[in-house]
Simulated assay, not measured.
Amino acid sequence: MADHVRDYVLASALPRLECRMLWQKVLGVSRAWLIAHDTDPLSAEAQVAYQALEARRLAGEPMAYILGCREFWGRDFQVSPEVLIPRPETELLVELGLQLLGGIASPAVLDLGTGSGIVGVSIALDRPDARVTATDKSMAALSMAQLNARALGASLLFSPGNWYDTELGLERYHLIVSNPPYIDKQDVHLGQGDLRFEPRVALTDEADGLGALRAIVQGAPRHLLPGAALCVEHGWDQATAVQHLFVSCGFIDVATKTDLAGIERLTWGRWPA
């Protein structure tokens, strides 16, 4: 049996980076410490703990759930199987949201379907003068978002409910952002890779993937200030349909932005002033 980290790294079927990340979790140490001490003797308890984590990863469980965290917008967010795994492309939603808030003092922001809180918390931390409200119908997700807000020192108001169906009332906002479930229920990717382990309710509307987007866009006018913006993430092939939703609801300056891979990732528009 291997008796130090280097042995495990060399023998594991996992990529070396993942193997080391699992050992960092087991031992509670930094990457630099692990590299400097990778020939130190390992306790039997540590080896058993590592082997359990390795087995989960070899079975396909996402690293984010095994480690309990994932980096997003330069910060570490805690995650669990009750929330989606943060993805780099969603950083575009934060980036555009912050741009749209430029020049607005003490803006009011609404993050619909906040999940782990990555979008709302990131905006709140980058714009500490903003009044950010985050909603989610999953109490487990909302609890995770609250945990991340506390851990990162962000001030937000959390409101349970489905999209606008919360105790928000008729409050209006300078910006509404959302990364809703938008995958078509027939999409084969739902049964592949990390998606197999993520909460299905956060991935698909169990229809054509546009149900949540319709609800968000159609409900937005009642909650937007004149000249305010709505920005939503969507699927790679949904830009035309989402733009049509925006225009048919009366939005102006409707546009779609692509991510670093050139995929049409999110659409936004302004409510007329």
Results as ranks from 00 to 15, higher is better:
E45Q: 14
W33R: 13
W33Y: 14
A52T: 13
A49I: 08
A59Q: 15
A46D: 14
Q47P: 05
L42W: 05
C19A: 14
E61D: 05
L58C: 08
W23T: 02
C19N: 02
W33M: 04
L14Y: 08
L53Q: 04
K25M: 06
R56H: 09
E45N: 10
A13G: 03
V48R: 13
W23G: 02
D38H: 12
V29C: 15
S30G: 08
A46I: 04
W23Y: 09
S12A: 13
S43P: 02
Q47C: 15
V48D: 13
K25H: 04
D40L: 12
E54V: 03
A32C: 02
C19Q: 03
V26H: 03
L22R: 00
H37M: 10
V48W: 00
D40S: 14
A44H: 14
A44N: 11
A55F: 08
P41H: 07
W23P: 04
S30Y: 09
A13M: 05
L53E: 10
A44F: 11
A44D: 09
V29H: 02
S43D: 13
Q47Y: 04
A36I: 01
P41F: 01
R56F: 08
L17Y: 03
G28I: 06
A52G: 01
D38P: 11
R56G: 06
Y8R: 07
M21D: 01
T39G: 08
E61I: 05
L27W: 07
Y50D: 07
E18M: 03
A52E: 15
W33K: 11
D38A: 01
L42T: 05
H37Y: 11
A55V: 07
A59F: 11
I35Y: 12
R31T: 05
M21L: 15
A32D: 02
L58E: 11
Q51R: 14
P15N: 15
I35T: 13
Q47S: 14
W33E: 11
L10F: 00
P41S: 10
K25Y: 02
H37C: 12
L34S: 08
R16W: 00
Y50A: 01
A55Q: 15
W33F: 11
Q51A: 14
I35E: 11
L27P: 02
L27C: 05
I35S: 12
S12Y: 05
A49F: 01
S43A: 14
L22T: 02
E61G: 10
A13D: 07
I35K: 10
E45P: 04
L27M: 12
G60K: 00
Q24I: 00
A44G: 14
P41L: 08
A59L: 02
V29G: 01
A55K: 15
R20S: 01
W23I: 00
E61N: 03
L22C: 02
A52H: 12
V48T: 15
V29I: 09
W23K: 06
A32W: 07
A13N: 09
V29N: 06
A59E: 14
L17M: 04
T39H: 14
R31F: 06
I35Q: 12
E18F: 00
V48S: 14
